[in-house]
Write a protein that binds this DNA or RNA. Sequence first.
DNA 1: AATTAATCATATCAATTTACTAGGAATTAA
DNA 2: TTAATTCCTAGTAAATTGATATGATTAATT
Lengths: 143, 143
Amino acid sequence: MKLSTRGRYGLRAMLDLAIHYDEGYIPLRHIAERQDISEGYLEQVFAMLKKEGLVKSARGAQGGYKLSDRPENITVGMILRTLEGSLAPVDCIAESNPTTCSRYDRCVTKLIWEMMRDSINDVVDSMNLKHLVLEYENIDSNR
Amino acid sequence: MKLSTRGRYGLRAMLDLAIHYDEGYIPLRHIAERQDISEGYLEQVFAMLKKEGLVKSARGAQGGYKLSDRPENITVGMILRTLEGSLAPVDCIAESNPTTCSRYDRCVTKLIWEMMRDSINDVVDSMNLKHLVLEYENIDSNR
DNA sequence: AATTAATCATATCAATTTACTAGGAATTAA
DNA sequence: TTAATTCCTAGTAAATTGATATGATTAATT
């Protein structure tokens, strides 16, 4: 039940973009250096974020990535579900493209999985990048 | 963020034991057949459950496994944490033996992971095997 | 005493996933 | 033209998963 580095790195990278929201396009190299993440790997993560429309890009010199919307409009849930797929603990109750299971109708444990899925989604949808930026500034001022 | 079959099979097997709670020791073969799970694999799962004290065993003919306590005293959380380890989405905030991270003090995303961990634990600790048995009987009577 | 049914213990293994790395092609500002 | 950047695809070592295989040990039954 662990998140992969895609989700973890991706959220940190998106927070980095949110912190530098008013600086225009940010090259991946900067994010990779600040967050100590492999740049090549980040490229793949950002391909997913771009495809989902959470960031926009500018190619060429002085190019880079920026958030496609204001930090308060991008939730942690949008980011994590993009990078990890459904946060449901089992595939049969994923929000989209659930796998089929012959036991579906009489499955009792499904109840648990649905409760877990919903509570996880509630948490990640309740937090957006603006919340995290404020927390970042708060931590930073206490050091 | 998916549970492995250990957790899923394990919960189904424990529910099976709970449904047959008053029948003494149940051999794994019966559970494996009813739940359509590999018996050899279930052995490994039950080794973990036994070590954690959630089931007790009797060797030899007429032996098998039974719950170590009444169904209402065994929560889904106890079972899943035994089989999956901490349900925290990242290792640095596991309840026991958290991994260390150089960014721990100034990590903002940690807030999210802690909220996810707590809400997941709340859900699985709020449900016990008796709840699932009642649900099983309810589903069964409607077929 | 022999047989049978069961847990217990350990080793092995194929398939998949993960977290990258490598190598370039395409694009654009300077 | 050059340098900086995204974009694209392929490869890969290590770890994990979900088993299977083999046999030892234990205990009830015959």
